[in-house]
């Protein structure tokens, strides 16, 4: 992984007039990475992807793929291929013609085009539809064809723009599994844009969280979830409890409770804990940090039970437990381990 990165973005930015869609960002990723660009709508994630594909010209910065500067190259000259949101299949061409289009444009001999189209349709399990037209296919089937049409070009980087957004839940899960299988089977570097944090966690080996045109954090799904670096990331990738605290001389303290070492600038901070890391009752006794509190609400969620607890200092905590027979009004100890907490600025 320490080898030369496959893709290197240097100070890449896009402005529309005075509006900054993407603030200057630096990002490297490697051969074989499955990268998710995660963020709410309007955060600039699609603009970033389109800059990679050559559909949006960057205002600043450079894009290097395999050490080559492709910043000013048009899409057809880039070693990238895109699966478009809504697929963008050619409605007047058969499935076979759609998938073979890129190879034909490149002047590949007929026999090779036919063979590779056949293989690719087999890979996405769509051989039976080769002579149909795209409008005759369902959303999931069109999705597979869009994938096949991009993958047949053997791109150095495969770009996917909200690939599963238009599919219903069941089909989306099936297609996510399919994409994972394809990545495992043929390798290569995939970059996909999504607003669904669960999808990013499920598929990606590396997640880039964006908000308002800025990269908030880059890391593995575990790092993003367990060690969020900003308040935005903390709440975007999952539920989070926060306690107001103060940092002075690299020591974070919660008034009337506890203190621990944490490097960083002085000022107000928040200590975050995931609801499923919160222990209640006897289990809290063995925890590094403890509060006492009162249960105010119990919600049965099936696999879990969710408690709302009012702490002694007046703040509210959510705890998700596997089981529990606590009732509203019960006094209870609340605790968590140091390893499960993180500190962000508000």
């Amino acid at each position: 992984m320490n080898a030369e990165p496959l893709v290197r973005l240097q100070g890449l930015a896009k402005s529309y007039g005075i509006y900054r869609a993407v603030h200057p960002l630096d990002l490297d990723f490697h051969e074989g990475d499955f990268l998710a660009i995660l963020g709410p709508s309007g955060c600039g994630k699609t603009t970033l992807l389109k800059m990679l594909g050559g559909f949006v010209e960057p205002s600043e910065g450079a894009i290097l793929i395999g050490g080559r500067d492709v910043t000013r190259l048009p899409p057809e000259k880039r070693p990238t291929n895109m699966v478009f949101q809504g697929y963008g299949l050619f409605p007047h061409m058969t499935i076979r013609q759609n998938v073979g289009y890129g190879l034909r444009i490149a002047g590949t001999p007929r026999a090779e085009v036919d063979a590779r189209v056949r293989d690719m349709l087999a890979l996405v399990q769509m051989e039976a539809f080769a002579d149909k037209l795209p409008p005759q296919l369902s959303g999931g089937q069109q999705q597979r064809i869009a994938l096949a049409r991009a993958l047949i070009m053997r791109p150095k980087v495969l770009l996917l723009d909200e690939p599963f957004a238009a599919l219903d839940l069941k089909l989306r899960q099936a297609m996510q599994e399919e994409l994972r299988r394809l990545h495992a089977e043929i390798g290569g570097t995939f970059v996909f844009v999504t607003h669904d944090q669960a999808e990013a966690m499920l598929l990606a080996t590396k997640v880039v969280v964006m908000s308002r045109g800025k990269v908030e954090q880059v890391g593995t799904p575990e790092e993003i979830y367990l060690r969020p670096k900003t308040h935005f990331v903390s709440t975007f990738v999952g539920e989070a409890n926060f306690l107001k605290a103060c940092r002075r001389l690299a020591r974070v303290s919660i008034e009337g409770a506890f203190a621990f070492d944490d490097a960083g600038p002085d000022g107000d901070v928040l200590v975050g804990v995931r609801p499923e890391k919160v222990r209640l009752g006897a289990a809290a006794a063995r925890c590094d940090h403890r509060f006492s509190g009162t249960v105010t609400q119990r919600i049965f969620l099936g696999a879990q039970v969710q408690y709302t607890v009012r702490l002694q200092n007046g703040e509210t905590f959510i705890a998700c437990l596997q089981e529990g027979d606590l009732l509203p009004g019960d006094s209870i100890d609340v605790g968590w381990m140091s390893a499960d907490q993180w500190v962000v600025t508000p």
Partner: peptide
């Protein structure tokens, strides 16, 4: 015509003229 079908043609290696020929004119 959806703009992304033209982008798709470009993405797959078509020059601007080839994209018009293959993705626009037939339709």
């Amino acid at each position: 015509i959806e703009e992304k079908t033209i982008e798709a043609a470009r993405d797959l290696g078509a020059s601007p003229w080839a994209a018009v020929r293959d993705a626009v004119l037939p339709r």
